[in-house]
Simulated assay, not measured.
Amino acid sequence: MSMTQSGKLNLDSPHSTETQGGKTDTFQQVTFPTPFPAGSSVIVQVTVQTFNGPETPGVRLHDVTNTGFKIRFNEILGGGVSADGKHTTETVGWTAYTV
């Protein structure tokens, strides 16, 4: 049986672009309202729902578990060229579900 949860958060990025894989000390922890059952395969999808800053806020996720996930912006410029990474506050919606 599939299980779904959703939510939203206000997210900004006061830090420079993170380029080292697995380095998550600048990520924000999101905890699910209800943990998914232990051993579940959890998928998280996110969408930026506002347009407060002129550059594109690339979204990075890490450590998706049955209790939550980590998220941050890595601001990008058009054409895939990295910007400084810093981005103003945007509203981000998320949906998590089991597969």
Rank of each mutant, 00 (worst) to 15 (best):
T17A: 15
A38F: 01
T17E: 13
V59T: 03
F32G: 02
H15K: 06
T88W: 03
V42Y: 05
S6P: 00
G68A: 10
G85K: 02
P37C: 08
L77Y: 11
V42W: 05
I71Y: 01
T47L: 10
D63V: 07
T98K: 09
F32S: 03
I71R: 01
K8G: 14
G93T: 00
G21R: 10
Q20F: 10
G79V: 05
T17I: 15
D63R: 12
Q29D: 12
Q20Y: 07
I43V: 15
D12S: 13
G85Q: 02
V81R: 13
P33K: 11
A38K: 06
K23Y: 12
G93E: 01
V92C: 02
G80C: 02
L11S: 01
V44D: 04
I76E: 09
G79W: 05
P35I: 04
V81G: 06
V59M: 01
T31A: 14
V92L: 03
D63F: 05
G68W: 09
D12Q: 07
G21H: 09
K8H: 14
H15A: 08
Q20P: 00
K86N: 00
S16N: 08
K8S: 15
G93M: 01
F51I: 11
T56N: 08
S82V: 12
Q5V: 04
P54Y: 09
G68T: 10
T95S: 08
L9F: 02
W94Y: 11
A83Q: 06
F36T: 04
G78V: 03
Q29C: 04
T67D: 11
G93F: 00
P37V: 08
G53R: 04
H62V: 09
H62K: 15
G85C: 06
N52F: 10
V59A: 00
N74R: 03
P33Y: 04
T19Q: 10
K23S: 12
L9N: 01
A38H: 01
E75A: 14
G79C: 06
I76L: 13
L9E: 02
Q5C: 04
K86R: 12
V59C: 01
L61G: 09
Q49R: 10
D12L: 02
R72N: 03
G58S: 07
G93V: 00
T4C: 07
W94P: 00
T56S: 07
S82K: 11
V64P: 10
S40G: 05
V99L: 15
E18C: 08
G79Y: 06
N66S: 14
S16R: 06
N74H: 06
G68K: 08
G22E: 09
G85M: 04
F27E: 06
H62M: 13
G22H: 08
A83I: 02
P35E: 08
F32E: 03
E75V: 07
V59I: 09
K23F: 11
T24V: 14
R72M: 08
K8E: 15
V81Y: 11
V99Q: 14
H62N: 15
G78T: 05
V99G: 13
